[in-house]
């Protein structure tokens, strides 16, 4: 890594991949710090912890031998959902705030590439969401123990796969918020999340014998476009398989991870390409 020496004798490390990584790290650290001081993040985290604790009360409604199962299902549904909600809200809020409050205007003229900034923002958010997932999993495993269950390796695999979905949703949130207003970005990201979770339904409707997606050409075209541009988020949800106590083949886990990371890369690259062209007036 070569450096520049200023007239006052300071060494500036701005060239080379290591310097680039350091800048990405600086942006990521600041993003974590920003989100860590954000009430929204702690609000969602607090609500999620309360919900998981509430599942103890809820499990009292079930038969004694089904209580652990209820807590398990409740957690597997709640934790990814709330982490995805955090990803959408923080992804949109933190990025658009940088543009609207013009904090970005003092940062981008530094020896920092826009791609580095966006990647740093993304990594910071992902680290924060990982922390959220781990905290919630910790609370949840305590609740599970209380009800006689435990965090099995298969459940851990299911959560790991859900984390790939969270990473992908974060990339979608950054993609939209690098281009548009906070409200529009939030709506569009939430739209991708909802459609992504029901793409298998759209797929089934397109393959059916009759129905609006088959008979109306416009709807058929819309369905096909949605299937092409929206990632299938149901790939990362294996709670049904867990319910049936199926084992998940490693090949599926690998393919789902590769699928999720590829879509994440696509959204990040598109975000960078469009953000590079954006005028910060």
């Amino acid at each position: 890594m070569s450096s520049i020496t200023t007239s006052g004798g300071l060494q500036l490390q701005v060239q080379g991949p290591l310097a680039s990584l350091r800048r990405v790290g600086a942006v990521a650290a600041n993003t974590v710090r920003e989100a860590g001081r954000n009430r929204l993040f702690f609000g969602i985290l607090g609500a999620a912890v309360l919900l998981l604790i509430f599942s103890v009360v809820l499990s009292d409604l079930a038969l004694v031998d089904q209580r652990a199962r209820l807590v398990q299902d409740f957690g597997l549904f709640t934790i990814p959902l709330l982490c995805n909600l955090t990803a959408i809200l923080l992804g949109v809020v933190l990025m658009t705030k940088e543009i609207e409050r013009k904090t970005l205007y003092a940062i981008l003229p530094k020896p920092l590439r826009r791609a580095e900034f966006l990647l740093g923002k993304y990594l910071g958010l992902v680290l924060l969401l990982l922390a959220e997932l781990l905290i919630l999993t910790f609370v949840w495993s305590g609740v599970l123990l209380l009800r006689g269950g435990w965090l099995t390796p298969v459940i851990a695999e299911a959560l790991a796969l859900q984390f790939i979905e969270i990473m992908l949703v974060t990339a979608v949130a950054l993609f939209f918020s690098a281009l548009s207003s906070p409200i529009l970005s939030g709506v569009l990201t939430a739209g991708v999340f909802v459609i992504g979770r029901i793409t298998y339904v759209i797929s089934e409707l397109l393959g059916a014998q009759k129905g609006v997606f088959v008979e109306v050409p416009l709807m058929r075209a819309l369905g096909r476009v949605l299937l092409a541009v929206v990632p299938d988020l149901s790939t990362f949800n294996i709670s049904d398989e867990l319910l049936l106590d199926w084992t998940i083949p490693n090949a599926y886990l690998g393919a789902a991870t590769a699928y999720g990371l590829s879509w994440t890369a696509v959204f990040l690259v598109l975000a960078v390409l469009l953000f590079e062209r954006r005028d910060l007036v």
């Binding site: 450096s3 300071l10 060494q11 500036l12 490390q13 701005v14 310097a19 350091r22 800048r23 790290g25 600086a26 650290a29 600041n30 710090r33 920003e34 001081r37 409050r101 013009k102 904090t103 205007y105 003092a106 940062i107 003229p109 530094k110 020896p111 920092l112």
Partner: peptide
């Protein structure tokens, strides 16, 4: 920048630390 805006949750030392890292200062 004109009427500079910085991260209002940061202290001046933290702003400068962040900026310094972008310049690769140790």
């Amino acid at each position: 920048p004109e009427s500079p805006y910085f991260y209002d949750y940061l202290k001046p030392t933290e702003v400068l630390d962040y900026v310094g890292r972008l310049y690769g200062l140790d």
